[in-house]
Structures are given as C-alpha cells and as structure tokens.
Design a protein around this nucleic acid. Structure first.
Length: 575
DNA sequence: GCCGTTTTCGGCCCGACTGTTTTCAGTCG
C-alpha cells in the first residue's frame, strides 16, 4: 500500500460524501488528509509503524484508524460500503468542469444518469430541461464541460506554462491598458507542472482589459467573463488562463491570494483571524465588518507578512508545509539562488548521445559563468545511447585533459554516467572508474526488478568509493514511465553515510528527485546535486528549473554540490 | 473529521461569476 493509493482512496471517499451531501468540513478533512499523505516525503507505512500517524497535520484518531486498516489489510471497509452506494460513473461526472455534487446528484436521482456517456446523450436530447433549475443555458454549459472533459487537458510543464503566460502578458501589455502585470498561481510558485495559468494585473479600465483578453487571438474559448475576472482556454495546449484585475492599492494582497497555494491561503487567513484581523484578496483588515474595518496592509506582500509578524515567504515555499510556522519564528531557510550555481555536471557530448562537442560544452559553460563543468557520457553497456567502450573512454579522458589545460577561467572535469547493472555492479571496473574525475551512477535497465533489488542496486552504487552521485534516482519519465519503487530510507542512509550526492535531474520530463523527495533527502543529511542532463546547447538553460525544484525543497547553498567553490569541490570529489 | 495561548465543543477562508432567480445556490479558485 503506497502513499498515493491511500490518498486516492481518501479523495474518492471525499467525492462520495460530497454526492451524499455530507458535512462540508468532514469532506474537507478527507481531502486535507489525502493531500498530506500525497505530499508526505516518507512512506505512510513507516509512519504507521512508528505510531506517528496522528502527528501528521489533518490526521486525527479516526483517520489514523482508517490508514491502519488500509496498511494492515490492504482494504477499507468503510470505503467499500460507500462505493456500493454510488456508481463509479457518477463519481466520474464530478470531473466535469462546472458540474458539482448538487447537480450530479440531481441528474442521478431524477434521470438515472450514472455515466458521462449517458450525460452527453441526455444533454443532446434535451432531457435535462425537465429538471427544476435547469434551462437551455445550463444544459449547453454542461455539454461544453463534457466536450472539454473528453479532450482531457493534462497538466503542462512549468517552462511551457511560463512560455504561454509570457505571450499573453505581452499581448495584454500591447493594449496600453495595463499598468502592472504579473504571473501568479502555481507558475509563480515554480511548481513543476501547472494545470492552469494565473495572471494578475492592475488597470484603470478593467472591463476594457477583460474585452481585450477574451477577444485575444491567443484565446480559443471564453469560459467565464466578468468585471474583474475572466477565464479562457488558450489556443495553445488548451490550457485554462485566468486573468484578474485589481486596483494598485490592493496589488500585494491580490498577488498573495492569487499566488496561493490554496492551503497556504487558508492557513494565512486562519492566522489573521487568530490575531483578530481579516485577510482577503483586498487586504489585511482590522475587522471583518465593512463599516468598522481599517486597512492595515494591502499594497505589497512584504507589508502584509510584516504586519502579521512574519518574515517574507518566497512563493516557492507557499505550500502549507511548515513555512508559515517557520516564518513566524524567523526560521525560514536562505534558499539557494540561481546565482549561487557554479557548475553543471551532467552533460552529454557527441562522444555518446549528445549533439555538442567537448569544446562547445566548455563554451556553453563559460557563457553561463560557471567555474567548472563535468562532461558525462554514457557507459559501455548502454548501446542505444552509444555508451563509451573503455578504449573510447580513455581517448575522451585524454581529450578533456587537453582542453582543460588550455582553460584559464574554468575547470573541465571528465565525468561518466555509469550504468548500475542488474546486480548492482557498475558498468566499468573500479580500475577504470578511478581514472574518471566524476562518476554519476544511474539505472537504465531492469526497471521491473523488485523494490528490494532496485534499492540494493542503488545502495551498492552509493557505497562504491568512485561514485560521487546517483543520477535521476527514481527513474521516472513523466507521462511515459512510472518511477520504480525504492526504499528511500535505505537509499538516503547509504547516500549520507558514503557521502554520495543524489541528483535533482533538471530535465522537465524527469524532475527527479522531485521537490518533496529532495526535501526529505536533505532532512536526512544527504547532499543534492543539480544536473541538466543536457544533450545540446539549449538544454544548459534547464538549470533554472533545477534551482526552482531545489528552492521548493527548502535547499540552502550548503545542501547543493553545485554551489561549492572549485577548492571545496575538488576536496569533495576526492571523497 | 480535525483541532485548541479565548475553546474538548463549536468553530472550520473568502469572494467572483453564472444562471435562474427577484435574493440566491452552485461552482470555482
């Protein structure tokens, strides 16, 4: 039973309870617990075994018992009973935008609609009009929701989301109606993927901006259009874009609200209440009553945090994972910044499957202002990526040495991304490994092995005296291949004890370790290393996304190998 | 169902937009 299985079951329970019209706060308790378990950087089974379940936020006695039942029996009787009451197709209908529990229940109870297919048919036949409170407009909106559902929009990578957002911002600015505009939402928090794009702007003519936005050539479809808030589907990737207009004096509070996360907002508002204030997107107020209230802060986020006695919380941390408490105690981490990065290690040259030469790599690294660069090509077994035979590796070592000798302002290391073979042996013998400056070990085969076998392979690699890091430790390819299962405690322990770094692979399809895993690793005492896995010149830019993930993982400079000075790095390489 | 520096009971974030109403419920973020 994995964390994601249990969080899935809790979410399903929440949906069924919604359909049954249960107490909203009870429903939210299940959703909150699901989120806690999903974000949990360690195995819920371990938390259960160590009797720490009720110490998790949002998990009390009752939910702890349910987790226990799931962990020990693999089943949950309560869930089983609930599922009997509502067909699964009815639960699926909740996934349709604009269709909530009340309407779904109405459709199911009165028309027996228990699947999205039946819903679509009923809309087309006009059957919904027989119901009280549903007229032509609602029916066509539901049908539109069904259409959108069928062309399911997936979450998009951060870099693509930022790209689309920039285009829209550029277009809006060109209207001349905008005084100030910023990306908010999960993109501002630098979350690795986004389900929508949130933009906040200041304008004296909000309704004209709304007209321009909804009529934009970049918008394929208008979902909602109001005085100060509109949503469209972008013609690129069909992603939803929300635009909100506020006054200059509310910009800070609106930016905070619109940046989220949702859980962060809830906690902030609760904190404001506890201190006797009232917080919403228009500001921090002395009182909820609109006649008595005075504005305490609203213009900038800093002002609001400061009035609440808090240190400024960078957007990347705003996930309700303890940052509010840390901020109140003035105990926030000093997050690593892009400017702290002094080099990149995980780069492939045209010796194996990269498209750039050694010389070009050095130029790219200099261009980034790096002090050092490691060139890692694949090892001999990885034939598909033209892994280097021992003799070719020797040639490459020679070539790198020659280039390095010619450099004044940058140190060039010869590295290798060495396969961890099925039994945990490395793809070059130690006698060869010791000639390489930087060995990063990786699993590229045998993904189907058991959790124990995969864990042992990585542990053995960590223990090898020549291995300095483990590349993409969980092996997932987003949307393509599920990560393999490993025992993180064991891997973290080996990495810490043998001073082997774990990579945050910056490639958007990898992002491995993820932010929450990297956070867990750091708390275990493991060092992290950022690697772009660049195979061409453009991919050097992916480092920024690794820094984003590192910041979301609460990492400071001393946690990240790429921040070491050349001297410190050389010492570390010597293990 | 959770949770506690006002509380072990009685709260639980809050406002915009929509459609169907004639003051509001449902949905969303």
């Amino acid at each position: 039973m994995q964390n994601k299985d249990i969080s899935h079951i809790f979410r399903e329970i929440a949906k069924i309870l919604e359909l049954k019209g249960e107490n909203l706060f009870r429903i939210r308790a299940y959703e909150r617990a699901a989120q806690t378990i999903e974000d949990l950087p360690e195995s819920i089974v371990k938390v259960y075994e160590e009797k720490r379940l009720t110490s998790l936020p949002g998990i009390g006695n009752d939910l702890a018992k349910k987790v226990e039942e799931l962990v020990t029996t693999g089943l949950l009787n309560y869930y089983h009973e609930l599922k009997k009451q509502i067909p699964s197709g009815v639960i699926d209908m909740l996934g349709i935008s604009g269709l909530g529990p009340k309407t779904v229940k109405l459709l199911y109870d009165n028309l027996g609609i228990d699947s999205i297919e039946k819903l679509e048919k009923a809309c087309r036949q006009g059957s919904l009009l027989s119901l009280e409170g549903i007229k032509e407009k609602t029916q066509s909106n539901i049908l539109r929701g069904v259409e959108l559902y069928k062309h399911a929009r997936e979450r998009i990578y951060l870099h693509l989301g930022l790209d689309i957002a920039e285009k829209i911002i550029k277009q809006l600015k060109s209207t001349g109606l905008i005084e100030k505009i910023e990306i908010a939402g999960s993109l501002r928090r630098k979350k690795e993927n986004a389900k929508d794009i949130d933009i906040l702007a200041v304008s004296k003519k909000p309704s004209e901006v709304m007209d321009a936005f909804t009529a934009s050539p970049l918008a394929a479809q208008v979902l909602v259009k109001g005085q100060t808030k509109s949503s469209v589907l972008a013609n690129e990737r069909n992603i939803q874009v929300d635009l909100r207009i506020v006054g200059e004096k509310n910009f800070g509070s609106a930016l905070m609200y619109f940046t989220g996360s949702k859980d962060f907002n809830i906690k902030m508002r609760q904190l404001a209440i506890k201190k006797g204030y009232h917080l919403n997107e228009y500001g921090l107020f002395s009182d909820k009553d609109s006649f008595k209230k005075r504005t305490l802060a609203s213009k900038s986020e800093k002002e609001i945090f400061s009035f609440l006695g808090m240190a400024y919380i960078p957007p990347e941390l705003r996930e309700a994972r303890g940052e509010i408490e840390a901020s109140l105690e003035d105990n926030l981490p000093e997050l690593v910044e892009f400017g702290d990065i002094r080099g990149d290690f995980h780069i492939h040259s045209d010796y194996s499957d990269g498209s750039i030469s050694l010389e070009e790599i050095v130029l790219c690294a200099k261009d980034k202002g790096y002090e050092y660069v490691g060139i890692c090509d694949h090892s001999q077994s990885l034939k598909v990526a033209r892994g280097l035979s021992v003799s070719l590796l020797h040639k490459k070592i020679e070539a790198v040495r020659m280039i390095d000798n010619r450099q004044k302002n940058i140190k060039v290391f010869c590295g290798s991304e060495v396969d961890i073979l099925a039994q945990g042996k490395l793809d070059y013998p130690d006698s060869v490994l010791k000639e390489i400056d930087f060995v990063i070990a990786a699993i590229h085969s045998g993904f189907k092995q058991s959790k124990q076998e995969l864990t042992q392979r990585i542990v053995r690699a960590c223990q090898n005296p020549y291995v300095r890091a483990i590349a993409h430790p969980t092996g997932g390819l987003r949307g393509l291949r599920e990560p393999y299962e490993i025992d993180f405690d064991e891997v973290f322990k080996a990495a810490r004890d043998y001073n082997t770094a774990l990579e945050i692979n910056c490639h958007p399809e990898r992002m491995d370790l993820s932010d929450t895993r990297a956070m867990a690793a750091q708390r275990f005492g493991v060092k992290l290393i950022l690697g772009t896995d660049a195979h061409n010149a453009e991919q050097f830019d992916l480092m920024a996304f690794g820094v984003n993930a590192a910041r979301r993982a609460w990492l400071e400079r001393q946690d990240v190998i790429n921040c070491l000075s050349l001297d410190e790095l050389s010492k570390w390489l010597g293990k």
